[in-house]
Design a protein around this nucleic acid. Sequence first.
DNA 1: TATGGTTAGACAACCAAGTTGACTACTTCA
DNA 2: TGAAGTAGTCAACTTGGTTGTCTAACCATA
Lengths: 146, 146
Amino acid sequence: MEPVSMLLAMAYRAMGDQFHERLRAVELEPLRPAHGYVFRFLAERRATAQDLAAHLGVTKQAAAKIVSELVEWRYVQREPHPTDKRAQYVTLTTKGRDYLKFADGMWADLEAEMASVIGTAELHALKGNLKKYLDHVGVHHLRPVW
Amino acid sequence: MEPVSMLLAMAYRAMGDQFHERLRAVELEPLRPAHGYVFRFLAERRATAQDLAAHLGVTKQAAAKIVSELVEWRYVQREPHPTDKRAQYVTLTTKGRDYLKFADGMWADLEAEMASVIGTAELHALKGNLKKYLDHVGVHHLRPVW
DNA sequence: TATGGTTAGACAACCAAGTTGACTACTTCA
DNA sequence: TGAAGTAGTCAACTTGGTTGTCTAACCATA
């Protein structure tokens, strides 16, 4: 039997491929996986470009480039930082939140398909065990898989 | 609860991070994930650069570059194609097979750690369900997650 | 058996997404 | 209040890919 690592990679890639295939049908701007990680991060907090850089695991210059792109496409906007005049907060616009909602819907569809294949209880157990493992290794949030 | 897609990505990335961390301690050449996919593919068959390109989902030129690199490091070697004078087979050297064995051992260690956290039976069920899903979506072998 | 279409691999020019390094303006702390 | 550190920008470079072109070899068919 294949190692779990390989099965995890295959399953993740299979879902991701279907996600992007469905996405291609509707989207305008060429959104890449990195953008998804940004949206998801910004959904939970206000963040500076530096915060994003740390989260994505890239340099601040790379993060700044991504932010500029997303600002241009109006998915995010810059706001003055209340206390630090050097910094700017980056936040989701309505368009950004709408996109995230749409993407979450597609992920949920793919999850439902998985549930229909392996069963709801099995899916629930699978998720529970993955969480247990993640908790054990101390991973608590999604970082990019590149 | 997070979507499965996210849990799969997190778990895969968590295992991958540990793998590369352990790898860093011993390796000489700067092997990247792409190389792992090449080794694993070559372990099962003789392949031309074109076959590799198709498997990796990159152009033949990109595949050729990777092959040249691995030949230089002596992980793989080129062999004349028996019937097609244009083509060359790429095969693993002893060094390549040794590396693969070593890597598989590390993946097995990480899997054992997972088993110790969630239980052997649970791990077995998890793998079985992932395979069932992969079978349903028609994915039968590992393609790179980039 | 000649010939036209296809394919494997090499070479070159280019591109995208990251990097490092340097700088300014502002912040923080002893 | 001065020195060290930090947010963001600009510019040069690196890397890992791309497209485009070419040659030699293959293969189908008339």
